[in-house]
Amino acid sequence: MNIFRLLGDLSHLASILILLQKIQSTRSCRGISFKTQALYATVFITRYLDLFYDWVSLYNFVMKIFFIASSCYVLYLMKYKYRPTHDPSIDTFRVEYLLGPCAVLALLFHYRFTLPELLWSFSIFLESVAILPQLFMLQRTGEAETITTHYLAALGAYRALYIPNWIYRWFTEDMVDPIAVTAGIVQTALYLDFFYVYFTKVLQGQKFELPA
């Protein structure tokens, strides 16, 4: 564990708490892509299967349980409790265009040809693009509630912080995970556009609005 990864994980934790706070305080999931949330639940369930047979640490165990439980809880909130506040007509990204290529990539790039390893690889690739339905929705509506942009910023910061973590590990442990690093760099790059607007508008006290 190093400071970059710890801050990254805490940022990830914070992003989920901000998302829950957004849904509870506005009693609405307006502006949140159900598809992205469903992809994250898929990512956590397929990646953390090792929960049942590989012990890493208490920290690792608790975080995995939290990520699976909270992502399923968000799906429940969106699908049942606040269902009327979700508008599927603007959440139109075709997730099959993500699931298919990620499955192919997992078959091509993995560490062992076993089902858990293939699912792990699949989850890494899927996580890197899972935010696309959300960003697509943002692009379509052209604006977002400030709390939603804080959620996205915390999620993006988590990914960005993993990059110095990998550089640090490369130097101190001589360890490189090429699959996670490649997917992680792609994932962080997807946030660049969002970060630009977040820093130049939201953090200056303005509303998140994209140019028409």
């Binding site: 590989d54 690792n60 995995k64 993993y162 360890m175 490189v176 995970d177």
Partner: peptide, 10 residues
């Protein structure tokens, strides 16, 4: 360097 999965990461 050692190339392999970083399974301790989340």
């Amino acid at each position: 360097s050692m190339w392999g999965p970083a399974k301790d990461e989340l």
